[in-house]
Protein backbone atom coordinates (compact mmCIF):
# COMPACT_ATOMS: atom_id res chain seq x y z
CA UNK A 1 0.00 0.00 0.00
CA UNK A 2 1.30 3.47 -0.82
CA UNK A 3 2.22 5.69 2.10
CA UNK A 4 -0.50 8.25 1.29
CA UNK A 5 -3.10 5.52 1.39
CA UNK A 6 -1.95 4.40 4.85
CA UNK A 7 -2.07 7.99 6.09
CA UNK A 8 -5.60 8.18 4.67
CA UNK A 9 -6.71 5.13 6.67
CA UNK A 10 -5.15 6.47 9.87
CA UNK A 11 -6.71 9.91 9.33
CA UNK A 12 -10.11 8.38 8.88
CA UNK A 13 -9.76 6.29 12.05
CA UNK A 14 -8.74 9.40 13.97
CA UNK A 15 -11.67 11.49 12.70
CA UNK A 16 -14.15 8.64 13.27
CA UNK A 17 -13.00 7.98 16.83
CA UNK A 18 -13.23 11.67 17.70
CA UNK A 19 -16.75 11.90 16.24
CA UNK A 20 -17.87 8.87 18.26
CA UNK A 21 -17.12 11.03 21.29
CA UNK A 22 -19.03 13.90 19.67
CA UNK A 23 -15.84 15.87 18.99
CA UNK A 24 -14.37 17.31 15.80
CA UNK A 25 -10.68 17.55 14.91
CA UNK A 26 -10.82 21.36 14.95
CA UNK A 27 -12.88 21.58 18.15
CA UNK A 28 -16.13 22.72 16.51
CA UNK A 29 -19.61 21.51 17.37
CA UNK A 30 -21.23 19.28 14.74
CA UNK A 31 -23.23 22.11 13.16
CA UNK A 32 -20.67 24.92 13.56
CA UNK A 33 -19.32 26.70 10.51
CA UNK A 34 -15.71 27.83 10.17
CA UNK A 35 -14.94 31.59 9.89
CA UNK A 36 -15.83 32.98 6.46
CA UNK A 37 -14.51 36.07 4.73
CA UNK A 38 -15.70 37.37 1.35
CA UNK A 39 -13.50 39.93 -0.42
CA UNK A 40 -15.51 41.31 -3.37
CA UNK A 41 -14.22 43.06 -6.54
CA UNK A 42 -10.70 41.69 -6.59
CA UNK A 43 -9.99 41.19 -10.31
CA UNK A 44 -9.72 44.25 -12.53
CA UNK A 45 -10.17 42.41 -15.84
CA UNK A 46 -13.32 40.58 -14.65
CA UNK A 47 -16.88 41.97 -14.76
CA UNK A 48 -17.42 40.66 -11.25
CA UNK A 49 -15.25 38.73 -8.80
CA UNK A 50 -14.85 37.60 -5.23
CA UNK A 51 -12.30 35.82 -3.12
CA UNK A 52 -13.67 33.56 -0.41
CA UNK A 53 -11.66 32.37 2.56
CA UNK A 54 -13.63 29.63 4.27
CA UNK A 55 -11.60 28.19 7.12
CA UNK A 56 -8.38 27.08 5.40
CA UNK A 57 -10.06 26.90 2.02
CA UNK A 58 -9.37 29.74 -0.42
CA UNK A 59 -11.19 30.17 -3.72
CA UNK A 60 -11.37 32.91 -6.32
CA UNK A 61 -14.44 33.35 -8.52
CA UNK A 62 -14.60 35.61 -11.55
CA UNK A 63 -17.39 36.53 -13.96
CA UNK A 64 -16.66 37.36 -17.60
CA UNK A 65 -19.48 38.52 -19.88
CA UNK A 66 -19.69 38.57 -23.64
CA UNK A 67 -22.51 39.16 -26.12
CA UNK A 68 -23.42 36.04 -28.04
CA UNK A 69 -26.18 34.04 -29.69
CA UNK A 70 -28.79 32.43 -27.41
CA UNK A 71 -29.41 28.67 -27.41
CA UNK A 72 -32.05 27.74 -30.04
CA UNK A 73 -34.39 26.24 -27.40
CA UNK A 74 -34.22 29.36 -25.17
CA UNK A 75 -34.00 32.25 -27.68
CA UNK A 76 -35.17 34.84 -25.15
CA UNK A 77 -32.79 33.92 -22.33
CA UNK A 78 -29.32 35.07 -21.41
CA UNK A 79 -26.81 32.29 -20.79
CA UNK A 80 -25.02 31.41 -17.60
CA UNK A 81 -22.35 28.77 -17.19
CA UNK A 82 -20.18 27.74 -14.26
CA UNK A 83 -16.75 26.17 -14.60
CA UNK A 84 -14.57 24.98 -11.72
CA UNK A 85 -10.81 24.60 -11.82
CA UNK A 86 -9.51 22.41 -9.00
CA UNK A 87 -6.05 23.77 -9.67
CA UNK A 88 -2.93 21.73 -8.84
CA UNK A 89 -2.01 24.82 -6.80
CA UNK A 90 -4.65 23.87 -4.24
CA UNK A 91 -3.38 20.51 -3.00
CA UNK A 92 -0.52 18.03 -3.50
CA UNK A 93 -2.93 15.40 -4.85
CA UNK A 94 -4.51 17.44 -7.65
CA UNK A 95 -3.02 16.84 -11.05
CA UNK A 96 -2.97 19.32 -13.88
CA UNK A 97 -5.03 18.74 -16.96
CA UNK A 98 -8.63 19.21 -18.05
CA UNK A 99 -11.29 19.16 -15.30
CA UNK A 100 -11.82 15.64 -13.96
CA UNK A 101 -15.13 14.19 -12.70
CA UNK A 102 -14.63 15.87 -9.31
CA UNK A 103 -14.26 19.35 -10.81
CA UNK A 104 -17.14 18.76 -13.22
CA UNK A 105 -19.49 17.68 -10.41
CA UNK A 106 -18.46 20.70 -8.35
CA UNK A 107 -19.09 23.06 -11.29
CA UNK A 108 -22.45 21.51 -12.13
CA UNK A 109 -23.72 21.57 -8.56
CA UNK A 110 -22.76 25.24 -8.19
CA UNK A 111 -24.31 25.92 -11.61
CA UNK A 112 -27.63 24.27 -10.69
CA UNK A 113 -27.87 26.18 -7.41
CA UNK A 114 -27.63 29.51 -9.23
CA UNK A 115 -29.63 28.52 -12.33
CA UNK A 116 -32.58 26.90 -10.55
CA UNK A 117 -32.83 29.63 -7.92
CA UNK A 118 -33.73 32.00 -10.81
CA UNK A 119 -32.10 34.87 -8.94
CA UNK A 120 -30.59 36.07 -12.24
CA UNK A 121 -33.62 36.95 -14.44
CA UNK A 122 -32.41 35.58 -17.77
CA UNK A 123 -35.32 37.08 -19.74
CA UNK A 124 -34.67 40.60 -18.42
CA UNK A 125 -34.03 42.98 -21.38
CA UNK A 126 -30.67 43.79 -19.80
CA UNK A 127 -29.62 40.15 -20.36
CA UNK A 128 -31.69 39.29 -23.42
CA UNK A 129 -30.54 42.25 -25.52
CA UNK A 130 -32.17 41.34 -28.87
CA UNK A 131 -34.53 38.36 -28.47
CA UNK A 132 -33.37 35.38 -30.54
CA UNK A 133 -30.21 37.18 -31.63
CA UNK A 134 -28.05 38.77 -28.97
CA UNK A 135 -27.88 37.88 -25.30
CA UNK A 136 -25.29 38.24 -22.56
CA UNK A 137 -23.33 35.07 -21.89
CA UNK A 138 -22.01 34.98 -18.34
CA UNK A 139 -19.02 32.74 -17.62
CA UNK A 140 -18.48 32.12 -13.93
CA UNK A 141 -15.10 30.53 -13.33
CA UNK A 142 -14.18 29.31 -9.86
CA UNK A 143 -10.50 28.66 -9.10
CA UNK A 144 -9.67 26.58 -6.04
CA UNK A 145 -6.42 27.98 -4.64
CA UNK A 146 -6.16 26.18 -1.29
CA UNK A 147 -8.19 23.05 -0.54
CA UNK A 148 -9.00 23.04 3.16
CA UNK A 149 -12.24 21.05 2.74
CA UNK A 150 -15.84 21.85 1.77
CA UNK A 151 -15.13 23.16 -1.71
CA UNK A 152 -18.85 23.00 -2.60
CA UNK A 153 -20.00 25.70 -0.18
CA UNK A 154 -16.95 27.90 -0.72
CA UNK A 155 -17.28 27.70 -4.51
CA UNK A 156 -21.03 28.40 -4.39
CA UNK A 157 -20.51 31.38 -2.11
CA UNK A 158 -17.73 32.73 -4.33
CA UNK A 159 -19.82 32.35 -7.49
CA UNK A 160 -22.81 34.06 -5.82
CA UNK A 161 -20.67 36.90 -4.41
CA UNK A 162 -19.00 37.44 -7.79
CA UNK A 163 -22.43 37.71 -9.46
CA UNK A 164 -23.57 40.13 -6.76
CA UNK A 165 -20.91 42.65 -7.78
CA UNK A 166 -20.99 41.99 -11.52
CA UNK A 167 -21.45 45.05 -13.72
CA UNK A 168 -22.15 44.81 -17.43
CA UNK A 169 -21.38 47.37 -20.11
CA UNK A 170 -24.45 49.32 -21.18
CA UNK A 171 -25.77 48.29 -24.57
CA UNK A 172 -27.34 50.59 -27.15
CA UNK A 173 -29.49 48.89 -29.81
CA UNK A 174 -30.17 50.49 -33.20
CA UNK A 175 -33.73 50.99 -34.47
CA UNK A 176 -33.77 47.95 -36.75
CA UNK A 177 -32.88 45.69 -33.80
CA UNK A 178 -29.81 44.56 -35.72
CA UNK A 179 -26.71 46.32 -34.44
CA UNK A 180 -25.58 46.83 -30.86
CA UNK A 181 -22.99 49.21 -29.45
CA UNK A 182 -21.25 48.64 -26.13
CA UNK A 183 -20.70 51.73 -23.97
CA UNK A 184 -17.93 52.10 -21.41
CA UNK A 185 -20.53 52.92 -18.79
CA UNK A 186 -21.44 49.90 -16.65
CA UNK A 187 -24.57 48.94 -14.76
CA UNK A 188 -25.20 46.22 -12.16
CA UNK A 189 -26.31 42.78 -13.30
CA UNK A 190 -30.04 42.38 -12.55
CA UNK A 191 -30.52 40.11 -9.55
CA UNK A 192 -33.49 39.02 -7.47
CA UNK A 193 -32.29 37.73 -4.14
CA UNK A 194 -29.49 35.32 -3.39
CA UNK A 195 -28.75 31.66 -2.84
CA UNK A 196 -26.28 29.74 -0.68
CA UNK A 197 -25.14 26.15 -0.39
CA UNK A 198 -24.95 23.94 2.72
CA UNK A 199 -22.80 20.82 2.72
CA UNK A 200 -22.88 18.00 5.24
CA UNK A 201 -20.50 15.07 5.53
CA UNK A 202 -21.44 11.73 7.01
CA UNK A 203 -18.64 9.85 8.65
CA UNK A 204 -19.72 6.43 9.94
CA UNK A 205 -22.91 7.37 11.84
CA UNK A 206 -22.23 11.04 12.49
CA UNK A 207 -23.20 13.95 10.28
CA UNK A 208 -21.27 17.21 10.41
CA UNK A 209 -21.86 20.55 8.69
CA UNK A 210 -19.03 22.26 6.78
CA UNK A 211 -16.49 19.40 6.73
CA UNK A 212 -12.86 20.41 7.20
CA UNK A 213 -10.11 18.78 5.17
CA UNK A 214 -9.75 15.69 7.39
CA UNK A 215 -13.52 15.17 7.46
CA UNK A 216 -13.82 15.80 3.74
CA UNK A 217 -11.18 13.15 3.00
CA UNK A 218 -12.61 10.68 5.48
CA UNK A 219 -16.29 11.10 4.65
CA UNK A 220 -18.50 8.20 3.59
CA UNK A 221 -21.22 10.39 2.10
CA UNK A 222 -21.85 14.02 1.27
CA UNK A 223 -25.07 15.99 1.01
CA UNK A 224 -25.27 19.50 -0.41
CA UNK A 225 -28.34 21.65 -0.83
CA UNK A 226 -28.82 25.16 -2.16
CA UNK A 227 -31.41 27.41 -0.50
CA UNK A 228 -32.58 30.85 -1.58
CA UNK A 229 -33.31 33.87 0.58
CA UNK A 230 -37.01 32.94 0.18
CA UNK A 231 -36.28 29.58 1.83
CA UNK A 232 -36.74 27.61 -1.38
CA UNK A 233 -34.64 24.50 -1.87
CA UNK A 234 -33.45 24.76 -5.47
CA UNK A 235 -30.82 22.06 -5.78
CA UNK A 236 -29.65 19.01 -3.88
CA UNK A 237 -26.82 16.62 -4.44
CA UNK A 238 -26.01 13.48 -2.52
CA UNK A 239 -22.46 12.35 -3.24
CA UNK A 240 -19.94 9.56 -2.48
CA UNK A 241 -20.57 5.86 -1.84
CA UNK A 242 -22.06 6.13 1.66
CA UNK A 243 -25.81 6.41 2.30
CA UNK A 244 -28.33 8.49 4.27
CA UNK A 245 -31.71 7.50 5.75
CA UNK A 246 -34.96 9.40 5.24
CA UNK A 247 -34.83 10.57 8.89
CA UNK A 248 -31.36 11.95 8.35
CA UNK A 249 -32.45 14.00 5.33
CA UNK A 250 -35.47 15.29 7.26
CA UNK A 251 -33.27 16.38 10.16
CA UNK A 252 -30.82 18.13 7.82
CA UNK A 253 -33.63 19.95 6.02
CA UNK A 254 -34.99 21.13 9.38
CA UNK A 255 -31.59 22.45 10.38
CA UNK A 256 -30.96 24.15 7.04
CA UNK A 257 -32.79 27.45 7.46
CA UNK A 258 -30.84 28.56 10.52
CA UNK A 259 -27.55 27.56 8.87
CA UNK A 260 -28.19 29.39 5.61
CA UNK A 261 -29.11 32.79 7.13
CA UNK A 262 -25.56 33.90 8.04
CA UNK A 263 -24.34 32.98 4.55
CA UNK A 264 -27.05 35.02 2.84
CA UNK A 265 -26.24 37.97 5.10
CA UNK A 266 -22.58 37.74 4.12
CA UNK A 267 -23.51 37.84 0.42
CA UNK A 268 -25.59 41.00 0.89
CA UNK A 269 -22.83 42.67 2.93
CA UNK A 270 -20.27 41.95 0.23
CA UNK A 271 -22.50 43.20 -2.59
CA UNK A 272 -22.30 46.83 -1.47
CA UNK A 273 -20.19 48.51 -4.11
CA UNK A 274 -16.90 49.55 -2.48
CA UNK A 275 -14.94 52.78 -2.75
CA UNK A 276 -12.76 52.96 -5.86
CA UNK A 277 -9.52 52.84 -3.84
CA UNK A 278 -10.55 49.58 -2.20
CA UNK A 279 -11.15 47.89 -5.52
CA UNK A 280 -9.10 45.16 -7.16
CA UNK A 281 -7.09 44.35 -4.12
CA UNK A 282 -6.80 41.25 -1.97
CA UNK A 283 -4.28 39.58 0.25
CA UNK A 284 -3.87 36.18 1.79
Amino acid sequence: MRSEAIVGVLEKQYVTKLLEKGKRSDGRNLLDCRPIQIIPNVIKKAEGSAMVKWGDTVILAGVKAQLGTPFPDTPNDGVITVNAEISPISSPTNESGPPGPRAVELARVVDRGIRESKIIPMKDPKLCVIPGKKVWILFIDVYILDDGGNLFDAAALGAMAALANTRLKRVVIDEDLEEVTLLDEKEPLPRKGSVASLTFAKIKDTIVYDPNLLEDRGKDARFSLAITDKGIVCSMQKGESGVFTEEEFVTLLDQSSSLVTPLLEKIEESSQFPEMNEMYHFDF
Binding site: K45, A46, K64, N83, P88, S96, P98, P99, D141
Partner: peptide, 16 residues
Amino acid sequence: EYRLATFSVNERKSPA
Protein backbone atom coordinates in the same frame (compact mmCIF):
# COMPACT_ATOMS: atom_id res chain seq x y z
CA GLU B 1 2.69 25.04 -15.50
CA TYR B 2 2.06 28.69 -16.33
CA ARG B 3 -1.64 29.45 -16.84
CA LEU B 4 -3.81 32.50 -17.35
CA ALA B 5 -7.04 32.45 -15.36
CA THR B 6 -10.05 32.66 -17.67
CA PHE B 7 -11.03 36.04 -16.21
CA SER B 8 -7.52 37.55 -16.12
CA VAL B 9 -7.70 38.98 -19.64
CA ASN B 10 -10.04 41.28 -21.61
CA GLU B 11 -11.87 38.54 -23.54
CA ARG B 12 -12.60 35.44 -21.49
CA LYS B 13 -9.92 32.84 -22.18
CA SER B 14 -10.88 29.19 -22.54
CA PRO B 15 -9.64 27.18 -19.53
CA ALA B 16 -7.70 24.86 -21.87
